[in-house]
Amino acid sequence: MDWPHRGSCLCGSVRYAAGEFAPQMAHCHCSMCRKFHGAAFATFGSTRAFRWLSGEAQLASFTAANGTVRQFCQQCGSSLTFQSPATPAGVVEIALGTLDTPLAQRPDAHIWVGSGADWYSPTAELPCHHAGRSSELVCP
């Protein structure tokens, strides 16, 4: 297995390896991503090739009312992975801000902008979806 990507949490306790990412990666503006990341949006990429390299015992998870599960480091609080009930088996969504290696691929959309922060407006450089990717386009 080729593991071109490596990542870690802020304190370095948790480290992972990932394979190639799926073509679609997005900036998510939903209220849960905003609150979990403490930012206007969170950027995720998904892969079928993922493994923890160290610190797995330091992981904690939060399961939201909608069934989404977010894993984070108990030491520093870094958000690491996300899975929704709709995520296909074997697919892991990774918070791309935790990557330590370069990533040539770029996000291709803004999603859930309908519930985004009122103090931030995405630019029209990428398609902006009101909710998920299949929802209406609503770029500024």
Rank of each mutant, 00 (worst) to 15 (best):
D2L: 06
W3G: 07
P4D: 12
H5T: 13
G7N: 09
S8T: 03
C9P: 13
C11F: 12
G12A: 06
S13H: 09
V14Y: 14
R15C: 04
R15L: 04
A17W: 09
G19I: 13
F21L: 14
P23N: 08
P23W: 05
M25G: 07
A26Y: 01
C28F: 08
C30W: 10
S31G: 11
C33R: 04
R34N: 07
K35P: 14
G45E: 12
S46T: 11
T47N: 06
T47D: 08
R51D: 06
W52I: 04
S54L: 02
S54C: 01
E56N: 01
A57K: 06
Q58L: 01
F62K: 10
F62S: 07
G67C: 08
T68I: 04
V69S: 10
F72E: 08
Q75M: 13
G77L: 07
G77W: 12
S78E: 11
L80K: 07
T81C: 06
S84V: 00
A86P: 07
P88L: 08
G90N: 04
G90I: 05
I94N: 14
A95G: 08
L96W: 04
L96I: 11
G97Q: 11
L99S: 06
T101M: 02
A109N: 09
H110E: 00
I111V: 13
G116C: 04
A117F: 05
A117C: 11
D118M: 02
S121T: 15
P122N: 02
E125K: 04
P127A: 01
P127K: 00
H129K: 01
H130M: 15
A131R: 02
A131C: 06
R133Q: 07
S134H: 10
S134L: 10
L137Y: 06
V138M: 14
C139S: 15
P140T: 05
